[in-house]
Nucleic acid binder design. Structure first.
Length: 472
RNA sequence: GCGCCCGUAGCUCAGCUGGAUAGAGCGUUGCCCUCCGAAGGCAAAGGUCGGAUGUUCGAAUCAUCUCGGGCGCGCCA
């Protein structure tokens, strides 16, 4: 269905100010699975990570790193001040700076060391993030730096001027917000994007009172950059707290593309982390939080990925560390993987009846295309075949709706029907997959199993979840 | 006040973009292994799809309104 159309999928919005925490992994997994799905259905997908390395937060990181640097040189720095990052993960940055520069940075004024320290800190944080993403099996093609939009020739300013020439930017005043009262509200003339002309509720500011660009302004420039690179279909994956930002970004994409590009924004809701039903406590104040890595190390990436995808993206999600490693039916990951392993075990055992059954996946599948499928007449077999036949349409629907969770549910249902039919072999031996005195029937059943195993493996691969040969 | 998301069985959630008596897991009740395929399976009970109007031959699905919950609402990203 994609017909080679270029699609840009942007996901993971972790600031490069620390390791990824659990809150990030849902968007990461969702975006990754969606990208898989689109690539599988014929789109030319570019997976993109937008690095928010231009705001005040990375400045705070730089100051935190500088303190750790002085600490690494033997200074007693005391408590990390409010507003900076107190976490221990900043220490290696300080140590690296000390090893690289010795005491020389300390002798400089802030204007001298600041850019150096910030660049080093961001680079090291980004390395951590890449490792975290790899642990989750999440891939990106492009890491795009927000800062690069400003420093390599002011692309943000250029975009604003471009929009101004189109009549979409003007200097004006905004009414004060209706919601929570703002303490230091001052009515001032500012640079505004005419978002209301494209369906938004109010025009949006592009410059801060200190003269810098708003985040929105650089985001417009970024999306214009995507459009200029040839993307007419863009998908952004954001956290729930950014919901109010959708309209203005869609308005901006319309404006910068002259209506030619389309932006779909997928919001992933919050993940509540539980252990056996009890909320997992985290103390942000101490700079401690549950990192993505801790969770992956504890329950494995298959469980994290499947569980995150076994729910609509716009519904909140409870993630129970104890439940996802349970080996039972109420754990969907296990249940689906078990079905795949069961199918594989049939192939292993079938050699007792069909000694010349090829061991290779491909060879066996080729042989089974000759199987006498007309002998599959039982209601359970027919149901399974019907289910298998739905797979291509299910994939298309999931891809065009941008809803990977449909794949997860489908796999669960397929696994369920497979387990049910398997169990009927207990009471009705003629329904077993391997029939000792009837190699032809065995062949037909193996063909059915081949279909099931192939579809399970295919679907699991789209979700980025492993399809094991046997359960341990 | 405004915008967006959600509301389906006791609980957690699906519902294939409008189609037939609304589904699954958990929980409850009752079953299926002396051994060979029980990490599994079968069955029962349980729902005015938050509510109201409307569109339609037909609505959990679309529209309007309403109630309840979540998120957001210059110069944070």
């Amino acid at each position: 269905i994609g017909r080679g159309e270029a699609v840009n999928v942007e996901y993971v919005s972790a600031n490069p100010t620390g390791p990824m925490h659990v809150g990030h992994c849902r968007g990461a997994v969702f975006g990754d699975a969606l990208a898989n799905l689109l690539a599988y259905t014929g789109f030319k997908v570019t997976r993109e990570y937008y690095i928010n390395d231009a705001g005040a937060q990375v400045d705070a990181l730089a100051r935190s790193a500088f303190l750790r640097y002085r600490e690494a040189l033997g200074e007693n720095i005391g408590a990390i001040p409010e507003g900076l990052y107190p976490g221990n993960y900043v220490k290696p940055v300080g140590e690296a700076l000390a090893a690289e520069h010795g005491p020389s940075l300390k002798q400089m004024p802030e204007s001298g060391w600041f850019a150096i320290v910030r660049a080093k800190a961001v680079a090291m944080m980004l390395d951590d993030i890449r490792d975290d993403l790899a642990a989750l099996n999440v891939k990106h093609d492009v890491f795009f730096s927000e800062r690069s939009l400003i420093e390599n020739g002011d692309k943000v300013g250029a975009t604003i001027e471009w929009l101004r020439r189109q009549g979409h930017v003007y200097e004006g005043r905004l009414p004060p917000p209706k919601g929570a009262p703002i303490e230091d509200w001052e009515d001032r003339e500012q640079t505004l994007f005419r978002a209301t002309a494209f369906g938004d509720d109010v025009d949006r500011p592009l410059k801060k009172s200190d003269g810098g660009y708003t985040y929105f302004a650089s985001d417009i420039a970024y999306h214009k950059n995507k459009f200029d690179r040839g993307f007419h279909t863009m998908i952004d994956v954001w956290g729930a707290d950014h919901g109010g930002y959708i309209k203005r970004m869609q308005a901006a994409v319309k404006a910068i593309s002259g209506g030619k590009a389309d932006l779909d924004v997928k919001i992933v809701q919050l993940v509540k982390l539980l252990r056996a039903g009890e909320p997992v406590k985290m103390s942000k104040r101490a700079g401690e939080f549950v990192t993505l890595r801790e969770v992956v190390d504890e329950v494995g990436r298959d469980a994290v990925r499947f569980d995150m995808l076994y729910r609509k993206n716009d519904a909140p999600l409870d993630f129970d560390l104890a439940k996802v490693i349970e080996q039972s039916r109420d754990n969907p990951v296990f249940y689906v993987q078990y079905a795949h392993a069961r199918g594989q075990s049939i192939f292993r055992n079938a050699r007792e009846v069909l000694a010349d059954l090829p061991a290779g996946d491909r060879e066996r599948a080729a042989l089974l295309t000759q199987a006498p499928l007309e002998r599959l007449e039982d209601a359970g077999e027919l149901a399974l075949m019907r289910r298998l036949a739905l797979y291509p349409r299910l994939i298309e629907a999931a891809a065009s709706a941008h809803e990977p969770h449909r794949v997860a549910f489908y796999l669960y249902e397929l696994a369920s029907e497979f387990h049910a039919f398997w169990t009927r072999g207990n009471d009705a031996p003629h329904l077993r997959f391997i029939i000792r005195n009837d190699p032809n029937m065995t062949l037909a059943r193996l063909a059915l199993v081949q279909g099931i195993v192939s579809v399970l493996a295919s679907g699991l691969a789209l979700l980025g979840v492993g399809a094991p040969q046997e359960m341990r």
